[in-house]
Simulated scan of single mutants.
Amino acid sequence: MASGTNVQLDKNTPESTWKEVLSTEQYRILRQKGTEPAGSGEYNKFKAEGDYNCAGCGTPLYTSETKFDSGCGWPAFYAEIPGAVDRHVDNAYGMRRVEITCAKCGGHLGHVFEGEGFPNPTDQRHCVNSRSIKFQSKE
């Protein structure tokens, strides 16, 4: 359920409904696979204990325990909450990447990269757009 609405949102939600419940920038990123400029997102350097939920449907995607500063300009996580994120091969722009989307609503989150040598348990970097997530404090 999107914040401020009583509408249940998932992969079957019509685009007209998404346009009503998301901001213009959230729609561009979540539904049209856009990207916010590096360093512009509110969660890039953000540190607090809690969960990061899908800005579209509200599903918990990541926890603060898996967030780290990768220096890439976007929020980075080394693992998702099990079952919360789907992965899809993305061959756009002449390169092979792995797109990550919300498993419940299909909203575009960003991309996951492996083998970059970050000192975390998975050697993965989930590079996530701030506008595709909403932080929920544990307090």
Results as ranks from 00 to 15, higher is better:
Gln26Pro: 09
Ser130Cys: 12
Phe118Met: 08
Tyr93Glu: 11
His126Trp: 04
Thr59His: 02
Ala79Cys: 02
Gly71Asp: 06
Thr17Arg: 06
Gly58Ser: 13
Gln32Asp: 13
Ser130His: 08
Thr24Ala: 14
Ala38Glu: 09
Gly115Asn: 09
Tyr27Trp: 00
Cys57Met: 03
Lys47His: 10
Ile100Lys: 08
Trp74Leu: 11
Gly39Ile: 03
Gly34Met: 02
Asn44Gln: 07
Ser130Gly: 14
Ser40Asp: 07
Asp123Asn: 15
Trp18Lys: 09
Asn53Glu: 04
Glu116Asn: 09
Val112Asn: 00
Arg97Ser: 13
Val98Pro: 05
Asn91Arg: 15
Ser70Pro: 10
His111Ala: 11
Pro119Trp: 11
Cys102Trp: 03
Ala38Trp: 01
Glu42Pro: 04
Ala92Thr: 15
Pro37Phe: 06
Thr35Tyr: 00
Glu49Met: 02
Gly115Tyr: 10
Ala48Phe: 05
Ile81Gln: 05
Glu20Asn: 13
Leu30Glu: 13
Asp86His: 07
Phe68Gly: 05
Gly106Ser: 09
Glu80Leu: 04
Pro60Leu: 01
Ser137Asp: 14
Lys45Pro: 01
Leu61Asn: 01
Gly107Glu: 11
Cys127Tyr: 10
Gln26Leu: 12
Gln124Asn: 15
Glu80Ile: 01
Lys33Gly: 01
Leu109Cys: 12
Pro121Ser: 15
